[in-house]
Design a protein around this nucleic acid. Structure first.
Lengths: 184, 184
DNA sequence: GCGCCCATGTAACTAGTTACATGATTCA
DNA sequence: TGAATCATGTAACTAGTTACATGGGCGC
């Protein structure tokens, strides 16, 4: 098994949507799937090279007017097969490492007021995320009136997951604040 | 900054509760904080060594009858200070990489029936986790009647976070199943 | 006699991040 | 003229996992 497995499949999946360069892939990650995925250049460029060697994608240099040379990658049939195979495999559950919970667990000697403050900050973060999700949805609805397309349905479902999580955590923050106020 | 930062603080935090060996630390992780943290031996032993060199913990070999030699580590004053410092720092948000969402996003060509099946599996996982959390709580209540202790309150709050998340995801699964049934 | 628990550790690999290096064009 | 964007890449570091190696004691 070659290295950088997850990045490879992420890139394959995006290249299946449309051929693009390393730079474009990064932009796609930041703009379209940032709420559940991220990549950085240091990951993308070496993996693209490997993918070309493995025959999963083909590089075609493109000279655009007044712009640096662009290496556009196109997914191959082999790449499609590899992606398809991965899509059908079950998702292996990844180990949890929640630093916030860990800190909170060790905070027996931290004053309750400080704990309350931390929870307030966290609640605010979730509130902002929730607003962010609603905004993404709104923007998408404006330039997208093809609501029946499968990709749109899938995107909506994934956004909904984020919203559900945020709401749950905001509820938890409120309950926790009540609990902490009582023992203050 | 030395390597293996998070493991170091996790171990410091547990050693503050009680001195113990690498083996014990692993057990503690698996039994007490597994729902938000995990460690493995390959991480624990080298980090304990580093921590001793840095003066954050002291190793005392202990010979227990009919048992292998046990290296019990005790946190030092310096270790306590280091931990305290870390506890007061804000938690830096970590990048999301949700493989399930990624796969789901790329699944436009996967038959809807297969998607429904995947969501059903996921729902079942969350249902099991929810039961697991309730069980932990029940067991803890039996051998713990000191409900007012801060550590017990904190544990309850953290368990509650897990429960909130599971419930939210089960709701999401149900909504998603409805949506998918409609386009089947 | 077999498998599980106790107990410690290393090697090799997989994964992910930060900082650095370079250089052109576009827009304010 | 200076900041932002386009565009590609490497080096060094931090983090985490799997598999392997070893060996005694306990209970069934």
């Amino acid at each position: 098994m070659p290295a950088r497995k997850k990045t490879k499949y992420a890139l394959l999946g995006i290249l299946k949507i449309s051929p693009m360069s390393g730079y474009d892939l990064k932009k796609f990650c930041d703009e379209v799937v940032s709420h559940f995925w991220n990549e950085n250049y240091a990951h993308i460029y070496p993996v693209l090279k490997e993918m070309e060697i493995e025959g999963l994608a083909i590089k075609s240099p493109m000279q655009t007017e007044g712009r640096p040379l662009k290496n556009v990658y196109t997914i191959t049939e082999e790449g499609r097969n590899e992606l398809e195979k991965w899509l059908l495999e079950p998702v292996e559950p990844h180990r949890t490492r929640d630093e916030f919970s860990l800190k909170f667990f060790f905070s027996t000697d931290v004053p309750v007021d400080k704990l309350i403050e931390n929870i307030e900050v966290r609640k605010e973060e979730f509130r902002k995320s929730l607003i962010h999700y609603s905004q993404i949805e709104k923007e998408r609805d404006i330039d997208n009136n093809t609501k029946d397309e499968k990709i749109v349905i899938i995107s909506t479902i994934l956004l909904n997951a984020g919203k559900h999580q945020c709401k749950a955590m905001i509820d938890w923050c409120n309950e926790t604040l009540e609990t902490l106020e009582k023992i203050k």
